[in-house]
Simulated assay, not measured.
Amino acid sequence: MSATSAGTPRINRYVALGDSFTEGVGDDDPTRPNGVRGWADRVASALAGIDADIGYANLAIRGRLMDGVVDEQLPRALSLRPDLVTISAGGNDILRPSVDLDAIVARYADMVAALRDNGARVLVFTAFDGTWNPIYRMLRGRMAIYNELIREFADDLGVELVDFWRMDHFADPRLWSWDRLHLSPAGHERMAFEVLRVLGLEHTLRLPPLPPAESLTDSERRTADLRWTKDFLAPWVLRRITGTSSGDCMEPKYPAYVDVGELGHGASESVRGLPVEQPSVL
């Protein structure tokens, strides 16, 4: 790695791993592969402010379990020899009827260690404390244990952590998609901001103000809940029962390095590779 200034490593090659969270589900963009943009694409656009020739690969695929991320994505990531890797994995395992948290986090830690040994700077995430969501609320205990195991290996391995669990400002419906499980475009924007903050990169990413909060009558709320149950929850439960995934037969958005400048959007986003204090509440 080269440096942008004294003691500051330059990020020339960025690889994103994981599931729907990293792929960008909830942030629709029909001009991009798989029809989504997401926070990782936004981070890549910001990193291009360091070097217009930065390479960016996004290997994440919606619905992937930990085994899929490790077995399918890790070998390709190692072959790309990235300077920076972001990983969010395990969320789909937690949503399964049964899960061995120690086993999946052990695989997660081994994956991170392999990437570190390969020369990459690695950033990982905890799960969000979405107690307002009935799915998350039922699994809160699992998520809390999973998060503590992630914090432990992040400390042990010396990797950076976006502690999503502690970001209370994400408990805003405007930051979540209609399916209540994925971030909205505004949510992805703010997550990109948080990733850049944890990386300690001074940037010019601008967050537009959120639209006014939607005010629903009791009748409108019941109608919305019924629509969500029919259009999202029922198909989601059916996939859990049948062992299928929304990502079956899908390919990664960017399986090899692409020129970030050709992705479009975010032309005003840039970073300079310098530590900076950023507000944690947006």
Rank of each mutant, 00 (worst) to 15 (best):
R10G: 01
N12A: 14
R13T: 14
R13A: 06
V15D: 11
V15S: 15
D19P: 10
D19N: 10
T22R: 08
G26L: 03
D29P: 14
P30D: 06
P30W: 00
T31W: 03
P33S: 02
N34Q: 09
N34S: 06
G35A: 14
R37L: 02
G38H: 00
W39T: 12
A40S: 09
D41Y: 04
R42D: 05
V43Y: 13
S45W: 09
A46F: 01
L47G: 07
G49S: 05
I50F: 15
I50G: 15
D51I: 04
A52S: 15
A52C: 01
I54P: 08
I54N: 06
I54M: 13
I54H: 00
A57N: 08
A57C: 14
A60D: 08
I61D: 14
R62V: 01
G63V: 03
G63F: 03
L65E: 00
M66T: 10
M66R: 09
M66Q: 04
G68R: 02
G68F: 12
V69T: 10
Q73H: 05
L74S: 13
P75W: 12
P75G: 11
A77R: 13
D83H: 01
L84Y: 09
T86C: 10
I87S: 13
I87C: 14
A89M: 09
G90S: 10
